[in-house]
Simulated assay, not measured.
Amino acid sequence: MPDSLHVSSQFDEDLARLRTHVLQMGGLVETQISSAIDAYSTGEVASVKSIIETDRKVNDLEKAIDDDCAHIIAKRQPTASDLRLVLGISKIVTDLERAGDEAKKIAKGVRRIYEAGHMPTQYGVGIRHLAEAALTMVRQALDAFARLDGKLALSVIRADEDVDVEFKSIIRQLITHMMEDPRTITTSIDIISISRAIERIGDHAKNISEQVVFVVEGRDIRHDKEAIK
């Protein structure tokens, strides 16, 4: 095999391995979010420890992927679409790590509520529906990355608006709860924090999708509302 082909083959393997590690990290974050949502509904606060332990694995993967990105740029000096892929990945893993942090916040909030002897599901404010919508965004964003599907990525970005609207509705309901019955204030504040964390997970899925569009099309559509219509 000519040296140039050997180098090219090795480079392709490096990029493929990098993408695999991103999807592995994404799978861990999905598990964190899903487990946190389940804990909210079931009160299985024992899972909080597992969610926190998974967060350490996510953090380790972020560091490893960042190192790999730096190594590839320094050693391979990628250009055009390959460079966009590496740069996009370096930003995607940051959002994945932060989404994992939000899942940890949800889990800790759930633990506080149940350990205080309250049942958050009695508030009937649609947390589960909001969380499922945000989790779907994360799954689809990762799917868009795996397939380098710009159209799917754009649909995820559009879905963020629905999550934001639903989040604001939940906040209004919780404020009403607190005004009508001051005894609900402590739990309501915890549920507001959980809702905010879920909304932020949707934001991170949106950010990941914006990077997928950048990788696929070379367009930076952040802050460009016209680009996602």
Results as ranks from 00 to 15, higher is better:
3 D>S: 12
23 L>A: 05
24 Q>N: 09
25 M>I: 08
27 G>V: 04
29 V>T: 09
30 E>R: 14
30 E>W: 03
31 T>E: 14
33 I>V: 15
42 T>S: 15
42 T>Q: 09
52 I>G: 01
54 T>E: 13
63 K>I: 15
63 K>H: 15
73 I>S: 08
74 A>E: 05
84 R>D: 07
88 G>N: 02
92 I>C: 00
94 T>L: 15
96 L>F: 04
97 E>C: 01
100 G>Y: 06
103 A>H: 03
106 I>A: 05
108 K>G: 00
109 G>I: 06
113 I>F: 00
115 E>N: 05
117 G>N: 04
118 H>T: 07
118 H>C: 07
120 P>R: 13
121 T>A: 11
121 T>W: 03
121 T>V: 15
129 H>Q: 15
130 L>A: 07
131 A>L: 01
132 E>A: 08
132 E>H: 09
135 L>W: 04
141 A>C: 02
145 F>A: 02
145 F>M: 01
155 S>D: 13
156 V>L: 09
160 D>F: 08
163 V>Q: 00
165 V>D: 10
172 R>F: 09
172 R>L: 12
174 L>I: 12
177 H>Y: 12
180 E>R: 13
189 I>K: 06
200 R>S: 01
202 G>Q: 01
203 D>M: 07
207 N>C: 02
208 I>Q: 01
210 E>C: 08
211 Q>A: 07
213 V>T: 04
218 G>P: 03
225 K>V: 12
227 A>T: 04
228 I>A: 08
